[in-house]
């Protein structure tokens, strides 16, 4: 059966079937809904549905239309999605790009790719790209602001047997050409003056770096506390990038499980840092990026225990 989705208070509509998830239908029709893992893990695609009938993977009716995982939901009628501030002005499309820089810092590669002069590239800070290598897709956050020079920086952690990271480590070199879809995701900075708590683990620093660059660019005076966690001190990379953010109203906490340099690093977990330093986040916005477990822990901690408005919790979950 075919249905239609309408995004409330906008002109955007897209077609649905009962056999393709609402999220996949949107993406295939160029509707840039927020999402992360597409597997039901990260919660990045959660949204409220104002009206309509939804079913899950097993064909059962979904009773609650609040916080619906669109990647796991299918339409059983026309539906209306409630996504405040939805912006589809930047179109998602495929690009080719050439690797122009490939530096490796321990287990993290800093890869810069450049799209040809024949193309323009627009994205919002915090968004990601989806690389297609031999038919397999992998998502990586844009770690910089690429709109002007068409150079996109990606931070890629090496995983043993990781499909794409192995290619980066073993096959790709400067000059290699890759294909990707972009821009994706809605992990973007809200236009408020609320203080910011930014929490990331591993290469979750990438979109956070993009957000911080954006704040520098616009001369933001918002207070921001960046909490960045890694397993070991050596896992930190691009620490020199942080120098520039001294111009911001920035507080920095670097957390590692194994700490030797206690003057620079804390041995606390990122959640422990939050618990130790905050008792009320009611006027904050929280941006979390990294592994799904960390994100769930922070979501629970901040919204359940520290009074964070759940609408002010933004995340980008890495699988």
């Amino acid at each position: 059966m075919s249905y239609q989705a309408h995004i409330k208070d906008t002109e955007y509509k897209f077609n649905l079937t009962d056999s393709v998830s609402i999220l996949e239908s949107a993406i295939s029709q160029g509707i840039n809904l927020p999402y992360g893992c597409r597997n039901g893990d990260c919660g990045g695609c959660k949204c409220n549905v104002s009206s309509g009938v939804l079913i899950d993977n097993d064909g059962h009716t979904i009773e609650s239309l609040t916080d619906v995982l669109l990647c796991q939901s299918f339409a059983n009628s026309d539906i209306v999605l409630d996504i405040p501030g939805f912006d589809n002005s930047i179109k998602i499309r495929n690009y080719l790009a050439k690797i122009i820089k490939l530096d490796k810092h321990n287990n993290t590669a800093i890869m810069q790719i450049q799209i040809p002069n024949t193309q323009t590239f627009n994205h919002l800070p915090g968004q990601f790209i989806e690389i297609n290598a031999a038919g397999v897709t992998r998502s990586y956050s844009i770690a910089n602001i690429a709109n002007d020079n068409k150079i996109i920086e990606l931070h890629i952690r090496h995983y043993l047997n990781g499909f794409f990271s192995s290619k980066v480590w073993n096959d790709y070199k400067v000059g290699s050409v890759i294909k990707f879809k972009a821009p994706l995701g809605n992990f973007t900075l809200q236009s408020t003056q609320n203080p910011l708590l930014m929490v990331c683990t591993g290469t979750g620093f990438a979109p956070i770096n993009s957000l911080l660059q954006h704040m520098l660019q616009i001369g933001s005076t918002r207070s921001v506390h960046l909490i960045w966690g890694n397993y070991e001190e050596d896992d930190f990379y691009c620490l020199d990038y942080l120098e520039q953010y001294k111009k911001l109203n920035l507080k920095l906490s670097l957390c590692a499980n194994k700490v030797q340099d206690a003057t620079t690093f804390s041995s606390l977990l990122v959640t422990q840092v939050i618990s130790q330093e905050y008792n009320d986040l009611s006027n904050y916005e929280v941006y979390a990026c990294g592994n799904p477990n960390m994100i769930n822990d922070i979501r629970n901690l901040t919204t359940n225990e520290l009074n964070l408005n759940k609408n002010n919790f933004f995340c980008d979950s890495f699988n």
Binding site: N94, L96, A97, K98, P116, N117, T118
Partner: peptide
Amino acid sequence: LIDQALEIGFDARTLI
């Protein structure tokens, strides 16, 4: 088909 076109068009030629 459009996906295939990306890999053989002017973008690819310009990059390579």
